[in-house]
Design a protein around this nucleic acid. Structure first.
Ligand SMILES: [Mn+2]
Ligand SMILES: [Mn+2]
Ligand SMILES: [Mn+2]
Ligand SMILES: [Mn+2]
Lengths: 219, 219
DNA sequence: ATATGCTTTTAGATATATCTAAATATTTAT
DNA sequence: ATAAATATTTAGATATATCTAAAAGCATAT
């Protein structure tokens, strides 16, 4: 039905849209997808013709209902496969995103749903991201970015925004994992670095790390 | 490393080669791959440049060692995924080939080997075809085509050559499955149809059916 | 309100994988 | 041995997805 390239555009438009909450612009999408703005423009025209995105020259792009349905299906497959890789094949959380980038494009509704059932309908992937159900519904996730908390707040690490090997290996090295209790000891105005306390350690995280950590149940 | 198109050519050259036991010709490959002879010629040139096939104009094609290694990896993945789909996701044997056509192109050696281990290193796929191990070794399978047996011979259905939905649904309807005992009651010279007896039924199979059935342990 | 710079689009090129139609080589039959 | 039939390749076209370089639109700062 849709090519891998098209599916990747839809997926990335979806995820940028949920970050910026307004129509996504060409350069941002190009950066995110590691391609050139001119390539993005070409593809957006094509997706617009297929009624998958709303796109007007120079005005940015957003998904149509039809486009969002496709995006959510790809995201559902991506996260289900990641869960499979960790739970059944014993991969670590830093190894699975790359492989799931391929598996997310396998076309078979029945495969997706049978996999879901085999895994007992998991609600979250190994990075804490919610898995859309077969109707495209996602549990709302009110986790808050570590950067937006205040000194003294306490929370449980709920999810990571960056699923790259390099970021997750950094967390591994620092012994930080999903579910960890994190307390904010201090925030440095100058560089937005954050001094935190976990159950076992004290450490200072840079802004670039903190912006990818999302917490829940804080107070 | 290699595109899906290239992998599909290598796989099909491999399987035709093991059928005809001489270099594979353009038209045969075109028919098998549902494409045109001119497309085949184009691709063979490309594969020859990459040293994956030996190809001389008008002389047919065969795999180089390098090409055979790739082909066996694709076949290994295809059959492991088929086994997974049947054993873990409870698909029927007629449903899995199509999905495996996609899964066979996922690129990750570790995924293939972890899947193999998760499945406890199966030796045969749901159609009775041998699964190459991680070194590309295949258990030799001396099953014999039903067409090549004689009246009075007795055997166990070992594998099917055609894994298409339509053929396997035909076998389902006739209540024929791998492992069934089959005895040859009569062979009709005129149209090569074969009268067989299973544990429960008598039936007549056409030549087109019989040529896709392979038996073992006959006498 | 206009010039400057940033963003976006267009024009034209490249690479892959296909196709149809025409040309050429090989095989087979007379 | 030649002609006819068949198989294969070439030439030229199409579709997708990308790129670079140049042109055009938009935002904003003086
Ligand atoms: Mn991921
Ligand atoms: Mn992808
Ligand atoms: Mn198969
Ligand atoms: Mn394939």
């Amino acid at each position: 039905m849709f090519s891998q390239a098209e599916e990747n555009y839809l997926k990335n438009i979806y995820s940028l849209h949920s970050e910026v909450n307004k129509s996504v612009n060409t350069n941002l999408l190009a950066t995110k997808m590691n391609t050139k703005p001119s390539s993005v423009t070409d593809m957006l025209k094509k997706l617009a013709v297929k009624d998958l995105v709303d796109y007007k020259k120079y005005q940015g792009v957003s998904l149509t209902d039809k486009g969002e349905i496709i995006a959510l299906k790809v995201i559902r497959k991506h996260r289900l496969w990641e869960y499979f890789l960790v739970e059944k094949l014993h991969y670590n959380w830093e190894e699975v995103h790359e492989i799931a980038e391929q598996l997310e494009h396998i076309k078979s509704e029945s495969l997706t749903n049978n996999l879901d059932s085999f895994l007992h309908f998991p609600k979250f992937d190994p990075h804490g991201d919610p898995i859309p159900d077969k109707n495209g519904r996602i549990p709302i996730n009110n986790a808050i970015c570590l950067l937006d908390l205040k000194v003294g707040n306490l929370g449980i690490l709920n999810s990571v925004k960056d699923s790259s090997k390099s970021f997750l290996n950094y967390l591994n090295k620092k012994n930080i994992a999903l579910g960890d209790r994190i307390k904010i000891i201090d925030m440095e105005e100058f560089d937005n670095s954050i001094h935190i306390e976990t159950r076992t350690h004290h450490m200072v995280l840079s802004k670039d790390v903190a912006k990818n950590l999302y917490l829940k149940h804080f107070k």
